[in-house]
Amino acid sequence: MISSPSLKMSGKARLSVRKSSLCLVLFGAAVLLLGAMFFHAAYQRQADAPLIVHIAGVVKTLDLTDLCLFTEARYTRHPSQADLYSAFQDHPASLEHFPTGSIAGPPAALRRLHGKLD
């Protein structure tokens, strides 16, 4: 028979919180956090708006056409300006040796074009 004194002590702890109350509190907290996430997103969007306007301004003055995200090759640096026939890959379904190629699929227009060739 197990009856260590510490167990007996805990046995007398009669004023404990119900697990369901704890769970409901956590639930409320989770919902609040989700709300806070959307709130933060809205706030941050507002705060970033001038920055985006600024970047759009740079795009306008420099006549840019692309984001400087993938600088590894010309068709990833300027995907929207890439050659019609060599852009991204020779075939939309082929695997790429540039990791970017696995993220950046060919532009929709190219896919449509290749659709006819498939």
Binding site: Q44, L69, F98, P99, T100
Partner: peptide, 30 residues
């Protein structure tokens, strides 16, 4: 949105040597 998707960065950077350092604006869609 706080760490600029640092886990995805290796894949995004790929072989690029030069990579922009930017924070992503949280356009999230409920």
């Amino acid at each position: 949105f706080f760490s600029a998707a640092f886990l995805f960065a290796p894949a995004l950077k790929g072989w690029s040597v030069l990579y922009p350092d930017f924070r992503i604006t949280p356009f999230i869609d409920p």
